[in-house]
Design a protein around this nucleic acid. Structure first.
Length: 435
RNA sequence: GUGGGUGUAGCUCAAUUGGUUAGAGCACCAGACUGUGGCUCUGGGGGUUGCGGGUUCAAGUCCCGUCACUCACCCCA
């Protein structure tokens, strides 16, 4: 291969773009129904933003960022292709003083992110997320809203196999206490655990809890849960959240081992998983991050958010058959395709085409110099609703036969009134027949 | 970074113990009383077997190297 797209990137070809637009449009409709407004931060940010927000010791910051473009050697002005969007959104809010006008903001985003990591199923270097950030409230009901919104986004696409896993990882205070307890309990058992967990013990003890190794699971089986170590405030918040969630009749499961990768999460964390996604079975995830806005130099602000991975949505959509279902049901193709008979007809036909388009109709014509029959085949393949054949006879008589491709019936209309006739023709959805 | 799997036509895949001119389905193109799509039938175009080297009378097949894709570990959406 002489030419190839960079590893972990992909071309979205014309036949798959409609599905992406479907995902995007469906998402926007749901998001706006929930009162969220779109924000579009740039594709790159100064590197320091992510270092501060995501955390120096995370994998993302340590080895997955695309960083480049310093103006001068030694200066701290390199930029990084955004590996996540919570930090950029918060930065944009602060920089543009959005809180001054309105202390409570409900925002959503939809677009590509970049992480330099090894690819596998459901994991790319350039990938897409739809996500929300609700900033300016500590209300547990807001946590509930975001969870329900995440579910509604999947529901809106007909995805119904997801599971919601929920946990609270407490505030920095109770978490620190729990970390100490956990380490103390784990230390004597380390020798019997996998090398990974030994590394996690230093890096991020909580991760030890969701190790898949049998011996590690056994070692952590009887360990204390974070649930028992939450401070009063965190416990109350989580209690209210759970109560409200039960009221919503949403199926969810408490998972005391659930932890999230970014430093900024506090209290509520949750994850939506989907079967058939492979090892990367999370289709979305999020949580509360009450400390981040202040950490980035803003006022003390409560906030919750989540992100859903669009490539993973697409996998779920495809493997559940929903994608094929949607594709076959959708309308497609031009309203009218003009077939010519002789080469001389082509210029006059093109003039007619121009007129139809000017009247707001989706119209098309052959550009490959194909025969008449082949033009009909093209019209059929494109999914054209109507076909008009324009040969010497038609231009002489000043009238043309308009063929309905779904029924095969034809009717005679005056050439001058073609646009009106196309408009008036009953709009039956047309798919290529016999497929 | 590490480990497994796979690279043959646009796509999905065949090809015996190494043995003629590397095949099929789909897709594409063209025809089937010369101005009408789908369905059917007939015909046609299309391959540096990822790339490079080696063994052999002979390599898609065996060996070495390399590249790519893919799945998984780590981590995440």
């Amino acid at each position: 291969m002489l030419l190839q797209a960079p590893k972990g990137t992909q071309d979205l070809l014309p036949d798959q773009v409609p599905l992406w637009r479907h995902i995007e449009e469906s998402s926007r409709a749901v998001l706006e129904r929930f009162g969220y407004a779109e924000i579009r931060p740039p594709m790159m940010e100064y590197t320091g933003l992510f270092q501060r927000a995501v955390g120096e010791v995370t994998d993302i910051v340590q080895k997955e960022m695309y960083t480049f473009g310093s103006d001068a050697p030694g200066k701290e002005d390199t930029v990084t292709l955004r590996p996540e969007l919570t930090a950029p959104v918060v930065r944009a809010c602060l920089e543009n003083s959005l809180f001054a006008k309105k202390p409570f903001q409900k925002l959503y985003y939809l677009g590509p992110l970049f992480r330099h990591e090894n690819v596998q199923k459901g994991r790319l270097r350039q990938f897409h997320q739809v996500g929300v950030e609700a900033l300016g409230s500590y209300d547990p009901l807001l946590d509930v809203e975001t969870i329900e919104l995440a579910c509604a986004l999947l529901d809106g696409l007909g995805l119904d196999q997801y599971e919601v896993r929920l946990n609270s990882i407490g505030c920095p205070l109770c978490r620190q206490e729990f970390r100490a307890t956990l380490k103390a309990a784990l230390a004597p058992r380390l020798s019997g655990m996998c090398p990974n967990c030994n590394a996690r013990f230093e890096r991020n003890v909580f991760r030890v809890l969701d190790c898949k190794e049998e011996k590690c699971r056994a070692a952590t089986a009887g360990l204390p849960s974070i649930q028992e170590h939450l401070c009063g405030e965190c416990k109350e918040h989580f209690g209210k959240l759970r109560g409200a969630l039960d009221g919503a009749k949403l199926k969810w499961a408490l998972d005391p081992r659930l932890v999230r990768g970014f430093d900024y999460y506090t209290k509520t964390v949750y994850e939506l998983t989907y079967p058939t996604l492979g090892a990367q079975n999370a289709i979305g995830g999020g949580g509360r991050y009450d400390g981040l806005v202040e950490e980035l130099g803003g006022p003390k602000t409560g906030a919750v958010g989540f992100a859903i991975g669009l490539e993973r949505v697409l996998i779920a959509l495809t493997e559940s058959g929903k994608a094929a279902e949607w594709l076959s049901a959708r309308e497609r193709g031009p309203e009218i395709f003009l077939c010519t008979v002789t080469a001389e007809d082509r210029v006059r036909t093109y003039a007619l085409l121009r007129e139809l388009r000017a009247r707001g109709l989706a119209a098309d014509v052959d550009f490959e110099g194909r025969g008449h029959k082949a033009q009909m085949r093209t019209a059929n393949k494109l999914g054209a609703r109507l076909v008009a054949v324009l040969g010497p006879d038609e231009f002489t008589k000043g009238s043309v036969k308009l063929k309905d491709m779904a029924t095969g019936t034809e009717r005679e209309v005056p050439l001058a009134g073609l646009a009106d006739a196309v408009r008036a023709a009953p709009a039956v959805p047309s798919a290529p027949a016999g497929a």
